[in-house]
């Protein structure tokens, strides 16, 4: 899985991601360049420390229409500790046709296998490769 987009995201966002808090979970936020809106939901919320949880990413265009055919990646890191997760989350399969073109109804992408193994600030990063091109966003989630 390529990680180049994460570095780009960091360059673009600087410290702006630090101003976000767990209050941003469950709310739509505009991606860096403004091509999409993304809502992240953690299930359960809050996720118990050291236990697996899932992340539901809802992706729409700016006008609210769902983006159902994007390539979406979500990751979580603790930048101040210089590490990510001890797990490899996986995207649940969408509805795919015989030619492996997949659709994610209502623009909902569900990832299983997230785990916050430490308390503290985790950066949730989202990258979308969709019909308007690539774009990213991030938010800070305080795990406790």
């Amino acid at each position: 899985m390529t990680r180049a987009w994460l570095v780009g995201l960091a360059l673009l966002s600087g410290c702006t991601t630090s101003s976000a808090t767990s209050a941003s979970v469950g709310e739509f936020r505009r991606t860096q360049v403004g091509r999409y809106q993304v809502k992240l939901e953690l299930e359960p919320e809050p996720p118990p420390l050291g236990e697996l949880f899932r992340v539901r990413a809802t992706v729409t265009l700016r006008d609210g229409r769902p983006v159902e055919t994007a390539k979406v990646e979500v990751d979580a890191q603790m930048p101040q500790h210089e590490h990510g997760m001890e797990t490899r989350p996986r995207l649940r399969p969408g509805e795919c046709d015989a030619e492996d073109r997949c659709k994610f109804p209502d623009g909902i992408y569900i990832f299983d296998g997230f785990k916050f193994h430490m308390s503290g600030d985790w950066t949730l990063l989202v990258h979308v490769e969709g019909p308007r091109g690539p774009d990213s966003t991030s938010l800070i989630y305080r795990a406790r």
Partner: peptide
């Protein structure tokens, strides 16, 4: 998973 460049960058930026 670990991404050192991003982590270092954010720390350098003083986040």
């Amino acid at each position: 998973m670990r991404i050192a460049p991003l982590a270092s960058l954010l720390v350098l930026l003083g986040c």
